[in-house]
Amino acid sequence: MAHRPLVVCAILAFTAGLVIASFAGFREFLPGLLEGALVTVEITLGGSVLAVICAFVAALSKMFGPWPIRGLAVVYIEIFRGTSALVQLFWLFFVLPRFGITLEPLTVAILALGLNVGAYGAEVVRGAVSAVSRGQWEATVALNMSRAQALRRIVLPQALVPMIPPWGNLFIELLKTTALVSLITISDLAFKAQEMNATTYRTVEIFSIVLVFYLAVAVLITVAMRSLERFAARGLARGPAQ
């Protein structure tokens, strides 16, 4: 039941791919698009790793840090959740050099997307950690564990499982946001698509291929996160019997 949209999507992507492949000139722009797709995947992976790190650091600082660190975490989360991803990207791209920090466009892209999604992820982590029942915390106190030990051994392992589905959504969100980096001169998939559209005017084919590609990666992320969830939930005795 839960897999039905996925299956529908996979079939949709497959047929769309076939239809587009039958158009003439398909071979002409495929190599260029694949080159762009590689950049998109690279940014998605880099951004995801950074986002997970940012989210955990920000969430744990916000929950357990001393007040200056807590304040810093709150400011970070509010700023990156409250402004537009494109504005953040442009700000890092145009304004950071004025502080004397000049970064490669690719680094700016990974940094901006990682920080942006990390801020949303921080709330996911916070929600999952605070959903661990009070009794678990009390038990760690009774066992004379330090707070760090309690977090590492008892609370975080339990919080990880319910975190996985929202993280899957965030990774797909990040994948979609990577299209914005084409606007700061990175030749990712969206950039290549525009470039080819300007030279060949085969708008429908090019943008259809690109959309199907993004869909395929998104479905891949969903499938990977589903299996990760199943793997992590083994022996947890939660939810309906399988």
Partner: peptide, 23 residues
Amino acid sequence: LAGFIEFIRSTPLLIQIFFIYFV
């Protein structure tokens, strides 16, 4: 319709904007 909704939800808004504007 379910497939269409999933499709729109998992592809970037920027490409959709280009698609509508250019197509």
